[in-house]
Design a protein around this nucleic acid. Structure first.
Lengths: 210, 210
DNA sequence: TAAAACAGACCAACCAGTCGGTCTTTATTT
DNA sequence: AAATAAAGACCGACTGGTTGGTCTGTTTTA
């Protein structure tokens, strides 16, 4: 057993993160890893398979974490907390994977793309489910349209890959805390709407008017 | 004066949106536009310049809108509303531009990249400013860390390009309404925290404890 | 000693960009 | 108004460099 395969993946991750999938040649990967074309193609069928492997390790991990969070908690509120927390933390563990995931997925070959899409949809479904449960059980504001709210949450978290730095002002755990706070503040039914409405020009379309 | 230039941009937008910048050749652009290499290179110095033009038209527009919203309102709450609304609406007007903007900016040549970065930072600065003003004037929750909150807002909005479809369930205006609602719900100081804290395992790090 | 792991020269395909030339529009002169 | 000149718009065969991938062989491991 050799660890060349892992070394190739790590090198590629760095390079892809900085220059993008198409900005890096197999030759560069091979040189930076101190190996050869032969070494590379012994472990990977193609450059495209390497791209797939990177996608797959990340999404598989995220999916597993979400499932775990789903199982260990039963009430929607701790569920949301757990999912957001583990999801945010992933960006510290897998930052380069994620950059590649969101920047280069367009270039996955159809067969690979399908497999990734399946897992990604599964994850999305789980997040939406938790919100839905919470709305039905009365823990969360019922007036919020599920799809828009769900995508808002996914968006704010996913975007982390664009700005997060390990040496930044805040740790990943602090970011997770703030994000959880933000999400719960708009999910939980809160203060009397009257105060909120004072600032509104009109009642939003999705508020039940009776 | 000819309109070939515009036609080339439109075709490129479609193709880039579907296959990415590197998934489309100049030959393809030229064929789809019913022109020739000569026609293309008469209007653009290079493929990279085309990429820049696409980036620039979008970010310039967004910046102008934000500045307008900033000028027409003075209080932070309507300002936030106006900025979010115009920002979200952009995704209907410039969807293909934005896809290219967020997927391919890595491949901008240094000189181009710098110019775009300047405008993008300027926009970000404006958004952060509005939040900051609101916090200082007491309209918004002071405990929220500016950077994290700001990036959360930018993230949820920016992510729209990944999922928005014109023929989707909700119009862009409805999405803007919901997003504004979400943002204001976590920005505005609300109900007594006690109810919220009941659900928390601990007091978040960013709440002043005295 | 056989199979797996790796080396590196080589190739065919592709692609951004060029260049000499043509057609079309506009400006200038007669 | 006609003739001429000049500039702008557009054409498409061609090229030089690059790139993913192959193939034959050598070394290492089990």
């Amino acid at each position: 057993m050799s660890d060349l395969r892992e070394k190739i993946i790590q090198t590629s991750l760095e390079l892809f993160d900085r220059h993008g999938f198409h900005g890096v040649t197999v030759k560069q990967i091979v040189q930076q890893t101190n190996t050869s074309k032969g070494g590379f193609y012994h472990h990977f069928q193609s450059k495209d398979e390497l791209l797939f492997v990177i996608h797959d390790t990340f999404i598989t991990y995220v999916l597993k974490e979400a499932q775990a969070a789903n199982v260990t908690h039963s009430s929607p509120i701790p569920k949301v907390q757990a999912i957001i927390q583990s999801f945010v933390q992933v960006f510290d563990l897998y930052k380069p994977h994620i950059s590649v995931f969101y920047q280069e997925s367009l270039y996955l070959k159809p067969a690979y793309e399908e497999e990734i899409k399946g897992k990604r949809d599964e994850f999305k479904r789980m997040v939406f489910n938790v919100i839905d449960e919470g709305q039905k059980s009365g823990h969360f504001r019922k007036e919020l349209p599920l799809e828009i709210t769900g995508m808002a949450i996914l968006g704010m978290v996913n975007w982390i890959y664009k700005w997060y730095r390990r040496d930044g002002t805040y740790t990943i755990d602090q970011i997770a805390e703030v994000f959880t706070d933000l999400v719960l503040h708009f999910l939980l039914p809160g203060k009397e709407d009257s105060e909120y409405f004072r600032h509104m020009l009109k009642v939003p379309f999705f508020y039940e008017s009776e």
